[in-house]
């Protein structure tokens, strides 16, 4: 077992973990952050996307021990970074019907927030490229792209804190 200290959604966590424990299993099973789903389990779908030290990553493709000393933000902590009940990206997904079954949504939102941090006013093509690591099998992406555009407008280029 290896001792790790990780900040998860603003709270300091300390656990002894097996080296083989994946970050997504650590978040869900040890810390209880079940808002981050496991999708494809082969690092294709992006459903398990979280922010690690301010950058989007697929938490199924990182070991929990690699997160030692780092800062993880999951979908559960996202709204805590803003004053409103929902983060503007969450609000925009709701307003624009950017989801149907909702399984991809946590990862999609985390990836979209990361995209706006690097490029606060992306074009439609840049949005589609920016979320290429996230698969949605329901929406055809149309309303997801609209949601990201809407969030970009409402956030006025301020980006997202993490």
């Amino acid at each position: 077992m290896v001792s790790i200290n990780v900040t998860v959604d603003g709270r300091s966590e300390s656990h002894d973990v097996e080296p083989r424990l994946l970050l997504v299993h650590y978040l869900r099973d040890v810390v209880g952050k079940v808002g981050t789903p496991i999708g494809c389990d082969t690092s294709n779908c992006g459903a398990c996307t979280v922010s690690f030290n301010g950058q989007s990553i697929k938490s199924c493709s990182m070991l929990a021990v690699q997160a030692d000393g780092g800062d993880v933000l999951t979908i559960e902590g996202l709204a805590g970074t803003v004053e409103t009940d929902l983060h503007p990206m969450q609000e925009a997904f709701r307003e624009c019907h950017g989801l149907q079954c909702g399984y991809c949504t946590p990862g999609m939102i985390m990836a979209a927030c990361d995209l706006l941090k690097e490029n606060p006013n992306p074009s439609e093509a840049e949005i589609r490229e920016g979320i290429e690591g996230n698969l949605c099998r329901c929406t055809g992406y149309h309303n997801i792209v609209r949601a990201v555009q809407t969030a970009a407008a409402s956030m006025s280029g301020t980006g997202v804190s993490s």
């Binding site: 690092s43 992006g46 996307t49 690690f52 950058q55 989007s56 990553i57 697929k58 493709s61 990182m62 990836a111 990361d114 995209l115 920016g130 290429e132 690591g133 996230n134």
Partner: peptide, 9 residues
């Protein structure tokens, strides 16, 4: 290469 998440790691 791959996608933004993979390029971050």
């Amino acid at each position: 290469v791959a996608d933004p998440q993979v390029r971050h790691r």
